[in-house]
Amino acid sequence: MMNKVLTSLNTFFFVILSVSIIFSLFSIPKLDVEETKSTRVNFYEVMQQEEKSLKTYPSNKKLKKEANSTYENNDKREIDNISKIPKFEINKSHLKNEISKIKLSRERKDILRVSTIIQNRISSIWIKPNSLSDTLSAKVLINLAPSGEILNFIMTEPSTNKSFNDSILSAMNKLSFFEEILVLERKLFEENFRNFKLVFKSSGEID
């Protein structure tokens, strides 16, 4: 009985584990709202952080070396400090992790870059209605061909304000291509830009 429970639990965990791995490999990195808002800044911050995390181990090693060279002259407190620094080991799983991280971050970078270009292009043609005191939001679903041509767009979630919606439709009608997506790998295009959404927002503030 106990064995059965254990094995079923084991299978359960195994299933979760394998599903998780599959999902994490194919999952679409989500660009959340706050990130795209100030894309350029955040983007570089994200990249820098990732680069930093990659550099941590070598720099630790270096630190340790330096510390070793001055070891004799230092007092006990510093020895304690040094002992707190984790030892650098080449660990297979770590390496794997890092490689997948690098791959992911590169994809993420590409997606962010293309998103930013699209964002700026729409911002340059969208004539936002004046002095809307309410916070408004409308979503437009866009269907692209691999050539970048806009096959179709539809306002899936219109706002409550007619002129806000009209201004978005006018802006969308000015566009026929997003040739920016041509730089993307086909896989990334299919995963992210075949169908994507634009979320038009009015904060209610005077911009």
């Binding site: 999902f23 994490s24 679409i28 997606i111 998103s115 911002s123 959404k197 634009l198 927002k201």
Partner: peptide
Amino acid sequence: IFFIIGFLISNNVFSILEIEILKGSDNL
């Protein structure tokens, strides 16, 4: 396992890419 589950949640599987447009054009 926890690590992978955490990764999963943060990635929000099956979500469609959303690009936010806050700024309008300066043109008239």
